[in-house]
Design a protein around this nucleic acid. Structure first.
Length: 644
RNA sequence: GGGCGCGUAGCUCAGUUGGAUAGAGCAUCAGCCUUCUAAGCUGAGGGUCGCAGGUUCGAUCCCUGCCGCGCCUACCA
């Protein structure tokens, strides 16, 4: 309810200023540093001072005297050099929270597509992939909480070099037949098997450069779809995708559709895009220089400062399309600009009933569903790929799809690296040079990194030891369920607490922590709030008991008022986190809310309260804390365990 | 060389279109379990916001230059 009040204040003030001074300015509304200054502050007098050539203090005095009364605002006062501090009508705010008006559904202004995860299906997921998926999934939850219609895509590059490399490992190095690979898939942790194999073949290429021909042959076979190598490619990619989906579902991460590169090839998405690009002269056939014989996009298209010789190759001189080219086609499909679509088949149904579909090339038995055609597209991809993302957007612009280009958002984030200490704990030997660095880059090729499932297992083990020692009366199953919730809470919060452009130097000690600014701290607050409500028994009829007079009387107590404010800020926090595009802001709000509750918990013994009105009010506040903590955690993809 | 990002407490990080006394967590030290769970709470110490200029009534935030670090800059994906 605070956002409505805020916009009421802003519009009332700006309207008054427009009429009184004939000045149209954007009125800023701040939260004062100290709670004793009031709930909101207007620095508008400072903004006006220059234009009106008048002292800020004098303007503030005038405004306070002349501003019309605003619904929900009790007093205005001038402070400091010209701040106008606002104090709210406390009872009114509490009563509004008591019986909240139903929030109008956001206008259906089109579908938002969020693409995240996008892990090469050739080995186990690692912590870097976790950051991508958790960031993407949380942003999806934020958008949905904000009323947006969101479609979640996870692009599967099942015909790329990385899959080919694992196939090379199986076929040429280990002489593994498709039947044997079937057996490996049926056994445990096929993604771990491939992790090691991928590191092995990468090293082999290094030692035997001639063997790179195997990769070229395999890549070719996979693209044609014929023969044993192609069969191996399908086996590996499909099985690994299953592994990734399982890993991500452990963290509560779901998708709506899995578009695959194999279908982009077979359905000739690129051919359609190529036609458009040629027709609209977005690319041209280079006839001289190092890129002679290639179709290229001029460097000036994606970077004004670039020289033409820095143009980007889209189609190689041998006629094959580069990754960027395929990505342009894929991005066009996301906006519904390609004039083509995939066919789809059910891939799996999550245990909560949500289905996910995978692209197929054939209309036979295709499911009657449709994807793509979004109004806005967020690509969750790490910042190292910003250059390629720029080229994709430039492609849309060159095709005259300016609106779509503007709505193509690279939701970038910095990589997860490993702290030198974490490397030591993993038994990884570091060069003296690497040891001196603040962090070391994760490398799938070197097999260097922390696997996602290993980390989750480690977190659950660690949480389980703690849960078991505190709750000996609970069954093993119950303990495990709680430990899992805490492990996921710790992991998701850890990945979210950093803002997007901060490099995370992964450290086991920090990631495994359950105290301080962590997910479990917030979960603990929600659990304790739940315990109070449980002990209180049947809750009274708050709306009947907490009359305006009762609220007004109790809210004279500054402490209680601050808690009412605290539980009223969730919408505000969501809006600002969405505006900033920072899931970290949502995480921080969750922590601050939990801190407020911890203080409340220690300040007010709810059950023992003898004043009936006050007890009801405290119970109501507790219920509010519980509800807001649960909701905020839900947006972060974190559940509240039954006990802790 | 060019592009992007970073530099804030011992460590890891926040810091909302420039605004009131720069904030958390961890670590350290001192306290708090007979009271709704101590995965918690209270308090203390700890800062030239990389450096130097500029704009402004006001700069951690904007501009310029410099220093240091990272990533990117493929006919690989």
């Amino acid at each position: 309810m605070l956002p409505q009040l805020e916009s009421r204040i802003v519009s009332a003030v700006s309207q008054h200023i427009l009429i009184r001074y004939g000045v149209d300015i954007a009125v800023a509304l701040e939260q004062p540093r100290q709670a004793s200054f009031g709930e909101f502050a207007l620095p508008v007098a400072f903004q006006l001072a220059r234009q009106l050539k008048k002292a800020p203090r004098a303007i503030a005095d005038e405004l306070v005297a002349e501003l019309p009364s605003i619904d929900g605002v009790k007093t205005l006062e001038v402070a400091g050099g010209g701040y106008i501090n606002l104090r709210l009508d406390r009872a009114a705010l509490a009563l509004a929270a008591l019986s909240p008006a139903p929030v109008a559904a956001a206008a259906g202004d089109g579908k938002v597509i969020v693409e995240h995860t996008n892990i090469n299906p050739n080995k186990a997921a690692h912590i870097g992939h976790l950051r991508n998926a958790i960031l993407g999934d949380t942003f999806v939850r934020m958008l949905r909480a904000g009323g947006q219609h969101v479609e979640v895509q996870n692009y599967i590059d099942n015909t790329g070099v990385q899959v080919a490399d694992v196939v090379v490992g199986f076929h040429y190095l280990d002489k593994t037949t498709p039947a044997q690979v079937h057996a490996l898939i049926a056994a445990d942790k096929f993604d771990y098997t491939c992790w090691d194999l991928y590191a092995k073949i990468s090293q082999y290429y290094k030692d035997n450069p001639d063997s790179l021909q195997w990769r070229r042959d395999t890549l070719h076979a996979i693209e044609s779809g014929e023969g044993e190598l192609a069969e191996l490619g399908r086996l590996v990619a499909d099985a690994i995708v299953e592994c990734h989906m399982n890993t991500m579902w452990r963290l509560g991460i779901q998708y709506d559709v899995l578009p695959r590169e194999s279908e982009i090839l077979h359905l000739k998405f690129w051919a359609s895009a190529f036609e458009q690009l040629k027709e609209r002269k977005a690319i041209y056939l280079e006839t001289e220089g190092k890129n002679s014989g290639c179709w290229v996009m001029p460097g000036s298209a994606f970077d004004e400062n670039r020289e033409d010789e820095d143009s980007k190759v889209i189609v190689r001189s041998n006629g094959t399309v580069t990754y960027v080219g395929k990505d342009i086609a894929y991005q066009m499909w996301k906006f519904g600009l390609l004039g083509k679509d995939f066919y789809y088949q059910p891939f799996r149904t999550y245990s909560d009933g949500h289905p996910v579909f995978v692209s197929t090339a054939s209309p036979d038995g295709a499911a009657p569903v449709a994807f793509g055609g979004g109004r806005k597209v967020y690509n969750v991809i790490d910042s190292r790929q910003s250059y390629l993302q720029d080229v994709v957007v430039a492609g849309l612009k060159a095709l005259n799809y300016h609106e779509q280009a503007a709505n193509s958002i690279h939701f970038s984030y910095e990589m997860v690296a490993m702290s030198p200490r974490a490397c030591v704990e993993m038994g990884i030997e570091l060069s003296a040079e690497d040891q001196a660095r603040p962090y070391v880059e994760v490398s799938g090729r070197k097999g260097l990194g922390v696997k996602a499932d290993d980390l989750i297992d480690k977190l659950i083990d660690s949480a389980l030891a703690e849960v078991a020692s505190r709750n000996e009366d609970k069954s093993g199953d119950e303990q495990f369920a709680v430990a899992s919730a805490l492990a996921i809470g710790a992991l998701r919060y850890f990945m979210l607490k950093f803002t997007r452009n901060t490099v995370i130097a992964f450290d086991f000690q920090e990631a495994l922590s359950f105290t301080g600014e962590t997910g479990p701290y917030v979960q603990y607050g929600a659990v304790r709030a739940g315990k109070i409500l449980q002990k209180a028994g049947d809750l009274p009829d708050f709306a009947a008991l907490l009359t305006p007079a009762v609220c007004a009387r109790l809210l004279e107590e500054e402490g209680l008022w601050q808690y009412v404010l605290a539980v009223s800020r969730t919408d505000q926090a969501l809006t600002s986190a969405l505006t900033a595009g920072e899931p970290a802001h949502m995480a921080r709000y969750a922590f601050q809310l939990a801190q407020q509750f911890a203080n409340f918990y220690h300040d007010y013994p709810v059950i023992q309260e003898t004043d009936a009105d006050k007890r009801a009010f405290l119970l109501w506040l507790t219920a509010q804390f519980r509800a807001q903590l649960e909701r905020t955690l839900g947006i972060l993809g974190i559940t509240v365990p039954a006990f802790m």
